[in-house]
Design a protein around this nucleic acid. Structure first.
Length: 757
DNA sequence: TACAGTCGGGG
DNA sequence: GTGTACGACTGTA
């Protein structure tokens, strides 16, 4: 018997009964361990059918231990009679379950389709990168396992992870790569793809010598790893991408699905055994939180690192709820797929009876404070104990059954306050950790290296919290319940109104409110301490955490373009006292705005931010007009790289389903003509061109002819973006155009130099 | 002018 | 882990 201390990297079903664990030892070694890990699942329903299921399972070749027992279903008041099936062959469980479900589709199944990491987390308190101590026998079999830290520590002992990055020289969807760059902490190589043999031999040597824990790639899922695997086969040079010998990598097919109100495209995937493969170009939200965020997500959700990098945060929070349920002895219902999609938080807010949205006072305002509830919906769920099982039905059970009930008067609902619910229990440590991170971030100086880690962690948490609310109202979520969901939004509206009353009682003017935040001002108040009493008053009246997002030097609420008398709730921009910007709904924020346009729009905002006096046109307008003229001159003299003029839009459907093909659809058609078929949810990049079809796709073999670019169109886009910013400063779009072209001897708009020549 | 297609937002 | 919110806005017929 030996004792090992280290960090758990990976965990998966073995081809033998049980599981494989990879431990990064404190000794620097990577240990392949195994562990017995029987899987238990349950079935409930008609006793006669359960007896038939019993016989069915007994007749299967896999070994199964069966018994009748009672378990808790979150949606049933009392215990449920179930058939328990326990299987020592970890890897065989999904297959056996699928056969059973096909044979007995009318039964209810529980704990039947859970990730192994989730089950392991519930029993051993493990998670990826957990610092732990294991006792192993002489065959490397784990006899005891003890977690030494929890996901909630802010500075856990860091595992000495070995990283290897591989990436091609160019985006393979745009052009054919010619070179691979391979980098680790200690080495850096480049290999030509035209010489496959040395490439494979060197890569094999590097993988063996470096033995990385994390393989970080660009387009590794969609291009690089499939390419390398094919190459290795062709040349009969095995490439040890997996750490586990003798196993094929796992390949997952590409797919398009609906989520968050739009079609999402996931490229195909390559998962490895014994090390993580993370493709930075095929990882959801990866650009937001990076590798540090992935580590954090893996830690708190207990999902495998290479899984959590690619799934939506909704799957992450869902996994956390499952761990909580398993620990509480609540069965996790089998995920039956009904026809509904998860709704985004915003969708809920805007839906009937969603969040409260106010009409802002159009125009420019000075010394405005923005006050936001911190993680409002999750805080409400925790504070009011809202969970599928805590929405009480006093009529059915009798009021006296409950010691404490909270009434949601608007909905005629009661929330049981006696026992902490599944969702609040899941959220509590996450909310606490996030708050702690925010505190640390506020204290740490800018140069502190820990900032980046904390920031990545906070961002990762944000997404988990945001999606948690959406899942409560999602019919397909395992622990969703629409009444609970409505209770959250009802409390949200109530709390925002209380905040508004508090502000008005203290003599503030409320300029705008949006779901979880309000914009307020009071004559003569422009420093942080002045708003402290307001924050305290709101907390007293609501019981929810609230923070001063900042005090704007100025903020502009924009009117609708269609009718300038109508305010738009989420189109605004402003600058805080510390110089940081907050921009919503304007061109810069849109993903389909060409870089050139958003860059110039940003320059205009910058000019306004740095002007001595925003009330005086003469301090900034000449400068802005100059920069606009300069930008337009560059455009018309061919000085803008085509990349900066690209428009990127998401395809919402199959090309054949477009009734009137949008510019994006026409660009996708050009790609389809050369064999590059895009699926719904994928982005297509194009430039606007003269004549038919009006666009040219970027990812075509031939670069676009710069003379064909529709400069006039880009000019319109730029002036529109400029007008968005200048409108609150009293300059209308027409007026702006007149002024831009008034003194424009240097601009050769309609006869670009290269056309004359 | 009507309609079809795309995007935002959350912290 | 595949089903159509809602409003603003833009482009096309």
């Amino acid at each position: 018997m030996a004792e090992l201390t280290g960090w758990l990297l990976d965990l998966y079903a073995d081809t033998q009964p049980g599981i494989v664990l990879w431990l990064i030892g404190e000794d620097g070694q990577r240990h392949r361990l195994t562990q017995d890990f029987p899987i238990t699942f349950y079935a409930a329903g008609e006793p006669a059918r359960l007896r038939l299921l019993w016989r069915f399972l007994q007749a299967q070749q896999e070994k199964v231990e069966l018994k009748r027992t009672e378990r808790r279903d979150i949606f049933s008041p009392g215990p449920v009679q179930v058939l328990e099936a326990r299987m020592p062959q970890t890897a065989a469980q999904p297959y056996l379950f699928q056969r059973a479900a096909r044979e007995f589709p009318e039964l209810a199944y529980y704990d039947a389709d859970l990730p192994i990491t989730t089950r392991h987390a519930a029993i051993y308190n493990t998670f990826p990168l957990v610092h732990c101590q294991v006792e192993v026998d002489e065959h490397g079999r784990v006899q005891a396992l003890q977690a030494l830290d929890t996901p909630w520590e802010l500075d856990p002992p860091a595992p000495p992870l070995r990283l290897l990055a591989i990436e091609p020289d160019v985006d393979p969807t745009h052009a054919d790569p010619t070179t691979l760059f391979v980098r680790s902490m200690s080495v850096s190589y480049r290999f030509r793809l035209e010489h496959p043999r040395p490439l494979l031999i060197n890569l094999r040597a590097i993988l063996q010598r470096q033995d990385p824990d994390v393989l970080m790639t660009a387009w590794g899922d969609t291009w690089l790893l499939p390419y390398l695997i094919d190459l290795a086969e062709q040349w009969h040079i095995p490439l040890p991408l997996n750490r586990e010998p003798g196993r094929e990598v796992i390949r997952k097919d590409e797919r398009s699905y609906m989520a968050y109100g739009q079609v999402i495209y996931r490229g195909k995937q390559v998962h490895l055994f014994g090390r993580w493969h993370i493709d930075g170009c095929n990882a959801m939200l990866f650009h937001e939180y990076g590798l540090e965020g992935v580590y954090e997500l893996a830690r708190v959700t207990a999902l495998a690192g290479q899984t959590v990098a690619r799934v939506s945060p909704g799957s992450g929070i869902s996994a956390m709820q499952m761990v909580t349920a398993l620990r509480l002895g609540i069965m996790v219902p089998w995920h039956k797929q009904q026809a509904e999609r998860p709704k985004s938080a915003l969708e809920m807010m805007q839906a009937d009876q969603g969040g409260l949205v106010y009409q802002p006072l159009i125009g420019l305002h000075r010394d405005v404070a923005e006050v936001d509830f911190i993680s409002m919906y999750p805080s409400i769920m925790r504070h009011f104990n809202i969970s599928p099982e805590t929405v009480a039905d006093p009529n059915a059970k009798g009021r006296d059954q409950y010691a404490r009930l909270e009434h949601v008067s608007e909905l005629g609902l009661w929330i049981d306050q006696d026992t902490s619910g599944l969702i609040p229990q899941t959220l509590a440590p996450l909310l606490d950790k996030r708050l702690e991170l925010k505190l640390r971030l506020a204290e740490l100086p800018a140069w502190d290296p820990r900032r980046q880690t904390y920031q990545a962690q906070a961002t990762a948490h944000k997404w988990l919290l945001v999606t948690c609310f959406g899942y409560l109202g999602y019919k397909n979520a395992r622990f969703g319940r629409i009444e609970a969901h409505e209770a959250v939004t009802a409390y949200g509206r109530e709390m925002l109104l209380r905040a508004k009353e508090a502000a008005e009682d203290l003599g503030f003017t409320v300029l705008h409110m949006y779901v979880d935040g309000l914009w307020v001002k009071k004559k003569g108040l422009a420093d942080v301490p002045s708003f402290q009493p307001l924050l305290e008053e709101i907390t007293t009246r609501t019981g929810l955490p609230i923070a001063l997002d900042g005090i704007y030097r100025w903020v502009a609420f924009l009117p609708s373009r269609v009718d300038e008398r109508v305010p738009v709730p989420n189109r605004y921009f402003g600058v805080f006292q510390d110089g940081s910007l907050k921009l919503r709904g304007i061109e810069i924020r849109r993903h389909d705005t060409p870089t050139w346009v958003s860059d110039v729009q940003m320059e205009i905002i910058d000019t306004l931010v740095h002007t001595s006096n925003v009330d005086d046109h003469s301090t900034y307008l000449p400068k802005i007009l100059r920069l606009l003229r300069k930008a337009l001159t560059r455009l018309h003299t061919g000085g803008i790289p085509v990349e900066d003029l690209l428009v990127a839009q998401t395809l919402s459907r199959q090309l054949s389903e477009y009734r009137t093909p949008s510019p994006a659809a026409r660009a996708a058609a050009q790609l389809a003509a050369v064999g590059k078929n895009l699926r719904p949810g994928q982005r297509v990049r194009f430039v606007y061109t003269l004549g038919e079809p009006g666009v040219r796709a970027w990812d075509l073999p031939q670069p676009p002819d710069v003379r064909s670019i529709d400069l006039e169109r880009y000019r319109v886009l730029l002036l529109r973006a400029a007008a968005t910013i200048l409108q609150p400063f009293g300059l209308q779009e027409e007026d702006l155009k007149t002024r831009v072209f008034a003194n424009a001897r240097d601009v050769t708009f309609f006869a670009p130099a290269y056309l004359k020549g």
